[in-house]
Amino acid sequence: MKNHFQGILMGAVVVGLSGFAGIASSAEMTYKAGDRSSGYTYATKETQGIQDDDIANPAYVYVDDGEALWSKVDGKAGKSCASCHAVDSAMLSDVGTRYPVYNAKLGKLQSLEQKINQEREEKMVAKPYKWESGSMLAMTIYMRNQSKGKPMNVSIDGPVIPFFEAGKKFYDQKRGQLDMSCANCHVDNAGNRIRANLLTEGQSNGFPTYRLKWQKPGSIHRRFRGCNKQVRATPYGYGSDEYVNLELYVAWRGRGLSVETPAVRN
């Protein structure tokens, strides 16, 4: 089963003095779309090299785990995800480009994590995963990885409009003791340094992403919480309406950028 790890090493992998990069899939990737640039373009070539090689990139362990979880029966209904959704289903092929989506029954947006837990509780009669747990990260990383290379393409029309507006308002609103908005860093100062750190556009197309700082992968909501704490604001909860709306707005900001999950960032 593990034979697919044994890819054929092309001669080009032996890259000599310059490179830590291995089998890169960067050829098909869109790191710039219009005036938007992925965080990849702000990373050092060493960090890019870690992302590009599916052995060097530590988050691929989570892709494996998620793939195994997809077919693992769990809960009282005796079902797995694969009972209803084949591994090669069309749903899986673009799910990473579309979320969060509007859920008419709930009357609000739903993140991928929330959708997974809804399915687990309603269809599988299984316990929901905790937001930042290994299982949830494995499942979301595996699912979004199926869309790697496809352009971010969230819907912001129709019933989504008020939630998109709420996300935009959150993004532009100053908050915390430092009285700073998301936009102050990630729009006004993208490309500038804050002390030694290079500010990016704050794009979400690589999430859940492996952060060198965390030494493990984490969700975009974990990142939002870190940003909010950094400006000394009280962070919102994982899966809060505020962060799901913000997640939609941030995903729209990155429209057209390739899904990179799992990316590697500082």
Binding site: F5, Q6, I8, L9, V13, V14, I55, Y60, V61, D64
Partner: peptide
């Protein structure tokens, strides 16, 4: 811990090939 390994499926005798390994561990 969980490990991942990549080596070529098939090589010619005498050929020098690269092997890549990663193991998930907090260290």
């Amino acid at each position: 811990a969980k490990a991942r390994v990549k080596a070529p499926k098939s090589v010619k005798k005498g050929e020098v090939f690269e092997v890549k390994t990663l193991i998930s561990h907090k260290m």
